[in-house]
């Protein structure tokens, strides 16, 4: 299936884009992360959470959505 991945903050700097579409077979969120970590080596040094269809989920969650977001913490003020 086709999934839109959104990147925020420092993650978007690592991927050099704020949004892209990937194709993936059924599975869970960790399958998407494995794929992205292969594509973007620097991601493994980054802290982030994953949202699926605007809801924060754990890596074990089954892929059900059309949109995934990678969200790093910000500290600035």
């Amino acid at each position: 299936m086709e999934i839109t991945i959104k990147y925020f903050g420092q993650i978007a700097e690592e991927t050099n884009t704020t949004e892209e579409t990937i194709r993936i077979e059924n599975g869970n969120i960790s399958n998407i992360l494995t794929l992205l970590l292969k594509k973007y080596d620097g991601l493994k040094y980054k802290d982030f959470q994953v949202a699926q269809n605007q809801e924060i989920v754990s890596p074990e969650t089954e892929i059900t959505g059309a949109e995934i977001a990678l969200l790093p913490p910000f500290s600035g003020g």
Binding site: F8, G9, Q10, P72, P73, F74, S75, G76, G77
Partner: peptide, 10 residues
């Protein structure tokens, strides 16, 4: 809570 990074905020 509020936090910022370059051009983005939470």
């Amino acid at each position: 809570f509020g936090a910022i990074y370059k051009f983005e905020g939470q």
